[in-house]
Design a protein around this nucleic acid. Structure first.
Length: 805
DNA sequence: CGTACTAGTCTTTTT
DNA sequence: GACTAGTACG
């Protein structure tokens, strides 16, 4: 009896075919991770390959972590020698060793999107590019696409000749790269581009890695882009033992440069490739699988596969249409709550998936109201929050003084009376001498143009130097605490009276815990290492394996995950498929959305619910949407409820003002019956008959008026998500839920509290509850209260304003 | 130099 | 609706 006996025939072929290139076409839920892990075990145990010679690339750190765990448990010894990581992490690791050969310091910083935007703004100013005509965002995305395609600034310039916009972008691209180089910084795309560049300019480095990684495996291969493909192609070139695993039906990252041709043309690049299809689905019931297959078969140009399952038929797919998005959220939260109460499922068994992050808000409100624990994945990354970025900028400045973006961010935070003019002068001085901004600061007294302000700069430099010299002996934890203490950052926050100051302080405490945890888990815990980890984590990476919370996330984030109960919310034309895809004349765009639908449906193991609303607010406008075409593509016999005919839908008249936007105006619900009659006819029909620009009629808009009353009642909705409801995974809407009662303004004081454990107290939003715990924190008392309605909350006493009853 | 208010933009989706 | 950049004023 061997570990391989549990695999099916196709899976076994995948495990045993270790020589040469292999293309594993793995349908959703077909056990591809099992194949990969068993394959690694087989290589080590049966073929005698050293773990040292194996590399597996995944898309997220979470996936990497899971694979690592499974490999560990199968083979035990030496497993840690296998490189299991994401493209980005692997590249960083390589660049940290060798990037000095292509003109960077090995302690380079990694710029996130925010930093990129800051740099680009600066670049546009220098090049006098009118950002009204050509937005920074657009330039950055053009540059990003160029990098995905391995097009250098020089290539870009040549290609762009004669094109007005193109030439500007090209110049910006050149300048941008130059700025990054001066700052000793790389952006996300550079991590891979520079690694490829390194391999091409330093054959001896490449040869070393080629010899090391004799067996390569790449997961989620359908989502690789051209640079990433080049990276693995180079690595695999010597031994050609490259095994790629993917599913063309799950390719959903075209916007990020993912090249679906990488998987479709694999056999052309590697004619000797073995192709294996995994077609047995171990995840979903027949009904779910049939629904998924019915939808995806509307796409052209896919590799034909026949997914099957021996699980039973299962429940029908549920479908519900509601009048408003509010009612939709109410239903989902209610349904989850009732299943939990009836003991059918635990909170951790549910996921709610949606197309855009913005949709999370309304769901959150309802979940809070129902007292259902949940986590939101995605939205604004924890590390992208203002206060976190500020503290990180201090860390970056200490780590790499050449990181101009970081230095400029904190030079006047907290306020030191250093303004825009001073900063400009210093920058001019730095430019003249071709030194970094920070180095210019050190010579502040030499800068004639800034006059008295020079005196304000010296203490800043002294402070940073102080941090640097002390870092040696007090470590990362000491450093971060020193920074907060010396700058008075938290004190400033407390005094600011900002509404979300409490949240921010919480987040900073969370960051400190992160630092401590990092130091505990890493033997040589360095500043660069910590910053790197911070830069490379995705939101999804932070979900714990066994959580007992409902997960809310986008369809994109859900890829690779599975849940017994799945809700797909917002199944409306205009939301999903999105407005952009519908209006696009590239058929590929709708097909990509359809693949996204396929991904969403196939996340469900037992039970799938599709919901939509007739009316929903999007960006302050009320939209009237028809049921998603993807729902209509599912045969009626698989659904538990009929999909309403489009004929019910009606518009009232043209909105002259927005005619050019190709939108119709409709009357909101609540109008009298005659107006809600069937004046409009079948919009699908209109859409196809008219064709062209006029055909876009399935989305209706109306300026918000009376629909506001559909918003949740103010009283019970907390302004932000309670801290314990969202550990710091949560980005999304934290702090953005509409404030109703609002916390009273003014600086809270850490005064003594007049209540104790066991006392009954009243909170302005949560109502009455009992104090469970009272802890003296670093700055303030932390009070744990179990509220009668809202459940347990942990809060700072100064902010909570609890009244003893 | 700092603050408070206003007007414009925005959204797909993420390593 | 929400966030941000830009502007006018103290």
């Amino acid at each position: 009896m061997s570990i391989y006996d549990t695999l099916n025939e196709q899976q076994k072929r995948g495990v045993f075919a270790v020589d040469g290139p292999v293309l594993l076409l793995a349908g959703a839920g077909s056990g591809k991770t099992r194949v990969l892990t068993h394959r690694i075990a087989y290589l080590i145990d049966e073929i005698g390959v050293s773990p040292y010679h194996i590399m597996a690339i995944t898309f997220t750190n979470k996936a990497a972590g899971e694979m690592r765990e499974r490999v560990d448990s199968i083979i035990g010894h030496g497993a840690n020698q296998v490189w299991v990581s994401t493209f980005h992490a692997a590249c960083v690791r390589i660049l940290r060793r060798y990037i000095d050969r292509i003109g960077f310091d090995n302690n380079f910083t990694i710029y996130d999107m925010d930093d990129q935007k800051t740099v680009m703004k600066d670049v546009c100013k220098r090049l006098q590019i009118d950002t009204k005509m050509l937005k920074e965002r657009a330039i950055l995305s053009a540059i990003s696409s160029a990098k995905d395609e391995l097009i250098s600034p020089q290539d870009y310039q040549i290609q762009a000749m004669g094109d007005f916009h193109g030439e500007r972008i090209a110049r910006a691209y050149v300048e941008y790269q130059e700025t990054l180089r001066k700052s000793n910084a790389l952006d996300f795309d550079d991590l891979i581009v520079k690694t490829v560049e390194l391999f091409k300019t330093c054959p001896e480095v490449l040869a070393g890695y080629q010899d090391r990684f004799r067996y390569l495996m790449v997961d989620e291969y359908q989502d690789t882009n051209t640079v990433q493909f080049e990276f693995i192609r180079l690595l695999a070139d010597k031994y050609r033992n490259l095994c790629v695993v993917g599913d063309d039906d799950q390719s959903i990252y075209k916007f990020r440069g993912a090249n679906i041709r990488n998987i479709l043309d694999f056999e052309e690049v590697y004619p000797e490739a073995t192709v294996i299809k995994l077609e047995q689905n171990y995840r979903s019931t027949q009904n779910v699988l049939d629904a998924a297959n019915a939808v995806i078969k509307n796409n052209r140009g896919r590799k034909e596969k026949a997914l099957w399952t021996d699980k039973g038929e299962g429940n029908k797919v549920h479908f519900r249409q509601f009048d408003t998005a509010y009612e939709e959220a109410e239903f989902i939260a209610g349904d989850v709550g009732s299943k939990k109460r009836r003991g059918i499922a635990d909170y951790g068994d549910f996921a709610v998936l949606y197309r855009t992050n913005a949709q999370a808000r309304m769901l959150e409100e309802r979940f809070i109201l129902e007292g259902i624990p949940y986590d939101v994945v995605g939205g604004t990354n924890f590390y992208a929050r203002r206060e976190i970025k500020d503290i990180l900028a201090y860390l970056k400045t200490v780590d790499n003084g050449r990181d101009d973006v970081a230095v400029k961010r904190i030079i006047n935070i907290p306020k030191r009376g250093i303004g825009a003019t001073t900063i400009t002068r210093v920058q001019e001085y730095a430019d003249e001498r071709n030194i970094s901004f920070y180095d210019a600061l050190r010579e502040a007294d030499q800068i004639m143009t800034i006059g008295r302000s020079a005196g304000k700069l010296a203490p800043f430099v002294t402070m940073i130097q102080g941090f640097r010299s002390k870092l040696e002996y007090y470590g990362l934890e000491g450093l971060i605490k020193d920074i907060i203490e010396t700058t008075g950052y938290v004190k400033e926050l407390e005094a600011s009276g900002e509404e979300d100051a409490e949240d921010r302080i919480h987040n900073i405490d969370e960051l400190i815990s992160k630092v401590v945890a990092y130091e505990e888990t890493h033997e040589e815990a360095g500043l660069s290492g910590f910053l790197e980890e911070v830069a490379l984590v995705a939101d999804i990476d932070r979900i714990e394996g066994e959580s007992s919370r409902v997960l809310l996330m986008t369809l994109h984030s859900a890829k690779g995950l599975e849940f017994p109960y799945v809700y797909l919310a917002g199944m409306e034309d205009g939301v999903f498929p999105g407005y952009m895809a519908i209006t696009s004349d590239d058929r590929e765009d709708i097909e990509e959305e359809r693949r996204l639908a396929y991904v969403g449906i196939t996340r469900a193991k037992e039970d799938l619910t599709l919901t939509c609303a007739k009316q929903r607010m999007v960006r302050g406008e009320t939209q009237y949407n028809a049921v998603s075409r993807f729902v209509e593509e599912i045969p009626a016999e698989l659904l538990d409820q009929k999909v309403p005919s489009l004929k019910k839908w009606n518009y009232v008249d043209y909105d002259e003002g927005s005619e050019e936007k190709l939108r119709f105006r409709a009357k909101p619900f609540g109008m009298d019956q005659t107006e809600r009659g069937d004046a409009g006819g079948d919009f699908r029909g209109n859409a196809s008959v008219n064709g062209g620009a006029d055909s876009y009629q399935r989305i209706f808009h109306k300026k918000q008026t009376d629909s506001a009353r559909h918003k949740p009642r103010a009283t019970a909705v907390p302004k932000r998500t309670p801290a314990e409801n969202r550990p710091f995974i949560a980005g999304g809407g934290a702090g953005s839920l509409k404030s109703v009662n609002g916390l009273s303004k003014g600086a809270p004081e850490a005064e003594a509290v007049n209540y104790g454990v066991g006392d009954r107290v009243r909170h302005i939003k949560y109502g009455e509850g009992t104090v469970m715990k009272l802890e003296k924190g670093p700055r303030d008392y932390q009070v744990t209260v179990v509220f009668d309605g809202a459940g347990q909350k942990i809060m700072y006493a100064a902010f909570a304003k609890l009244k003893k009853l």
